[in-house]
């Protein structure tokens, strides 16, 4: 299956802390595709649907979140994830 990738700059003040982590995983869970996140294009990659693992990524403002996804709705999933990061998780 084809893998799609995307990235987004974390611009919200607190970065990928508790609430943004919850929102990111909730967004990822709306899609059937396998979705992973990393703070470097080289990985290590983390399951975007795991709230516990995503909270442990602890990405800060100014870091780039890299996404990769594979599955039927992979492109839509990454568009939604890039959008929620760009919207600063609707927190600011």
């Amino acid at each position: 299956m084809q893998e799609v990738t995307a990235s987004a700059l974390l611009t919200n003040k607190i970065g990928l802390h508790a609430r943004p982590s919850v929102k990111l995983t909730q967004t990822a869970k709306r899609f059937g595709s396998r979705i992973e996140v990393a703070t470097s294009a080289a990985g290590p990659w983390t399951d975007a649907k795991s709230p516990v693992k995503i909270m442990r990524v602890k990405a800060a403002k100014g870091e780039v979140l890299h996404f990769k996804a594979s599955g039927e709705d992979a492109s839509a999933a990454l568009a939604a994830l890039v959008d929620i990061v760009a919207r600063k998780f609707d927190e600011e």
Binding site: V22, K49, S50, P51
Partner: peptide, 24 residues
């Protein structure tokens, strides 16, 4: 509670919700 509810909000079954909380 927060992790279990996050997992539950995505429609995951009970065993997955429990596993996510216990992953902590």
């Amino acid at each position: 509670a927060v992790m279990a509810a996050t997992e539950a909000s995505g429609g995951s079954p009970l065993a997955v919700v429990q596993a996510t909380a216990e992953e902590l």
